[in-house]
């Protein structure tokens, strides 16, 4: 049992970060706090993929001089595929964060507040 827990410790940390991000998105009222929760959630997924790609006793995915011509042993290098996918995911995540911050600025210009419940109150009062 203890060995089982230790052999998968990265998965426990990623599960905890995912729960933290989900709580931030659901439980917090402030819109910027919701966005911070979304960032944490995204980082948890990236951590999951990166930890899938790692191998015990392997090196970084850059070939050394003697392995250049097709003689590389795949056990000596990390799996490069999750790294590539997460490279894309990080940049796209920052782009979505930027769009979300733009929407937050527009919401603030219209309602003069960032709290979700106050925005709902104003909308209910004005009959929208």
């Amino acid at each position: 049992m203890f060995e089982y827990i230790v052999s998968k410790y990265n998965y426990w940390v990623y599960i905890f970060l995912m729960m933290l991000g989900l709580y931030g998105m659901i439980g917090k009222k402030n819109l910027v706090k919701k966005l911070i929760g979304m960032n944490i959630f995204q980082v948890a997924i990236i951590l999951f993929y990166i930890s899938i790609g790692s191998k015990v006793g392997a090196s970084i995915p850059i070939l050394t001089a003697e392995d250049l011509h097709g003689s590389a042993n795949p056990l000596h290098y990390m799996n490069p595929l999750p790294h590539v996918l997460m490279l894309t995911a990080i940049v796209v995540g920052i782009a979505t964060t930027g769009v979300a911050l733009g929407i937050i600025i527009m919401v603030y210009n219209r309602y003069k507040t960032l709290a979700e419940d106050e925005i709902l109150e104003i909308r209910k009062k004005s009959g929208v």
Binding site: Y9, S51, I52, V56, L81
Partner: peptide
Amino acid sequence: WGDPNQPGSVHVAPRYT
């Protein structure tokens, strides 16, 4: 964690390497 023969590391990644 770090299993070299997990399913994600055996299919197409060795060809890239």
